[in-house]
Amino acid sequence: MVDLSFRRRRMQDLRKQPGFDQIAIACMFVLYAPIVVLVVFSFNDNRSVVRWTEFSFRWYAAAFGNDGIRNATLVSFQVAAFATFFSVIFATMAALATTRTPAFRGQTAAYAIINQPLMVPEIVTAVATLSFFAILKRLTGVTGIGYLMVAHTVFCIPFAYMPIRARLEDMNLSLEQAAADLYATPLRVFWRVTLPLLLPGIFAGAMLAFVVSLDDVIITLLVAGPGETTLPIYILGQIRRGITPEINAVSTLLLGLTLIFVTLFFFLGRKRT
């Protein structure tokens, strides 16, 4: 009784701290006001991105009619799809190896290596990838979008790994033991029990990987060759020549897409065994 009332009082206290509301509102404002402005002006019937005149879809129409944007979108989706597919496979294997085996020497090192792309400054990875790929290209003579796809796959792995591993850690080990007890070989345990139960985690990891790939600028900027312009790179190029509401429209669409993916990620991640 005493303990309970004490805890309740403390919880109320936190929200009643002087300045709590103001700080919260200020944070929300800084985070979301620019995005609101971007979205609002994407519907502006005017060349200006600061002066509102009238509501219109004209910049969306312009964006859809723009070959540059269409091509960049296509490239972005191709790269993201490839990177998502393969990063999820590698992440699933890594997650299984780090949760479904007895503790092994160097396990912590394995985590660190898997998560490395999250910790190393992206520009370092980008420069390293650029020079490494340059050597490969000279040695093999092979060029093409494959390099960009591989680079994306690599930095997507840790993002896909996190939710998959979280899901595996949540999953009761006795389910897999029960399957083995009921005469399922390790391979059949995986297909019949582990994988079906892991699917929400895999979907969540795929969403995250897709969004991260779609979003990437630095590595793409350095690695992408001619004709491999992704949407963020295209936007970056356009902005150098001055912001137009067309860019606002494209950014708003990208935002919408990301929101859908993040929402899916949230709901899939929340569904528990």
Binding site: N172, Q177, D181, L182, Y183, V193
Partner: peptide
Amino acid sequence: PYKRPVNTVFQSYALFPHMTVSQNIRF
């Protein structure tokens, strides 16, 4: 375990949550 003709009833039951009652029994 899968080569031993013994079966276990687990403390937590460990029923497969993605299967129905009869699918569990058939497994």
